[in-house]
Simulated scan of single mutants.
Amino acid sequence: MQAIIVTTPGGSSALDYAEVPDPVPGEGQALVEVAASGVNFIDVYHREGRYPLPTPFVPGSEGAGTVLAVGPGVTEVAVGDRVAWANIIGSYAEKQLVPAERLVPVPDGLDLDLAAAVLLQGMTAHYLTHATHEVREGDVVLVHAAAGGMGLLLTQTAKMRGAHVIATVSSDAKEELARAAGADEVLRYEDVAANVRKRCHVVYDGVGAATFEDSLAALRPRGLLALYGAASGPVPPFDLQRLNAAGSLFVTRPTLGHYVTTRAELLERAEDVLGWVADGSLDVTIYHRYPLAEARRAHDDLEGRRTTGKLLLIP
């Protein structure tokens, strides 16, 4: 089969399109024919070595497809099932081995590419708005990078819970997307400090170093900054005493894996997200579908901030 391989971490040139042996499912595993693989910033972090993985490895942590075979002891899925997964490394390939207990069913009538496009970011938006900070009616919420795939989903899920959403974007075209997703106010990044000081109950920040100071300044007393990513680079160390002086603020660095620790929790979040997409409550914007062989271009476009919505690799 064909797959993307990283032998030495680095830039997008580290993504090599190569032929590798077909995997065989072992105990508790399912072999899935990949219909589409989501492209996410965590894939960039893995490729760069920022989040180190043993090499060589197949990147990609999200996908959807059809079960081809199952190993001994598998009861969760059967051959022919349509399934999706997230936080399982190896989806940039024509086939992938996945622990059966980490697969979730794709509802009838929902295209597999939509399932691949929404699961990781959708469940991230779910835990951020339903658990990290349980958004309530009337909460003021700041969403950075609101026109990206993650930002669009966060805006929609926060609006579902009755929030007033302030969105940041970098262009007029991205402003239109954020407003279409339900944002009540849309600002350029440079305007945040002057317009959002001490207004927000929660800030959802996946940008990191470039937005961190404005994110802190945007919080009202006892507000929460959920720093769920670092697209612009990691936040430097800072003095925790600043949180006291700014109003007993909270800062957290959450990750999806800690919010789907059991199969029951995984299914609950996945069923909500995929159900919302299936019934039209949650809109998924797919910016572009790239052939698997063009993974380098997909990463370049993502890192260059030339995209809005989700990127997919299609084997």
Rank of each mutant, 00 (worst) to 15 (best):
254 P>Q: 09
85 W>Y: 15
238 F>K: 01
20 V>H: 06
300 D>A: 12
168 T>Q: 05
266 L>V: 08
125 A>H: 04
1 M>G: 03
304 G>Q: 09
112 L>A: 07
166 I>T: 11
129 T>C: 10
153 L>G: 02
47 R>G: 03
11 G>N: 12
221 P>A: 07
149 G>L: 04
176 E>Q: 10
124 T>H: 06
242 R>C: 04
233 G>L: 01
2 Q>M: 14
65 G>F: 09
144 H>P: 01
6 V>N: 10
273 V>C: 08
105 P>V: 07
7 T>Y: 07
124 T>K: 02
20 V>L: 13
89 I>N: 12
289 R>Q: 07
196 V>E: 12
218 A>F: 03
156 Q>G: 03
252 T>F: 15
41 F>H: 13
202 V>M: 08
115 A>V: 14
217 A>F: 10
28 G>A: 09
111 D>L: 08
309 G>D: 03
194 A>Q: 13
129 T>V: 11
31 L>Y: 05
87 N>Y: 14
39 V>C: 04
264 A>C: 12
230 A>I: 10
139 D>L: 04
75 T>F: 13
139 D>P: 00
81 D>I: 00
25 P>A: 11
30 A>S: 00
121 Q>R: 13
275 G>V: 02
66 T>M: 13
172 D>Y: 06
181 A>L: 03
212 F>S: 02
201 H>E: 01
231 A>K: 07
243 L>A: 00
33 E>A: 14
164 H>T: 11
45 Y>G: 03
197 R>H: 13
144 H>C: 01
313 L>N: 00
195 N>R: 15
59 P>H: 12
21 P>R: 10
297 R>G: 01
47 R>M: 12
167 A>N: 06
72 P>L: 15
244 N>Q: 13
227 L>V: 01
274 L>D: 05
279 D>L: 10
101 E>P: 08
194 A>P: 04
183 A>P: 02
31 L>T: 01
19 E>Y: 13
250 F>T: 13
112 L>D: 05
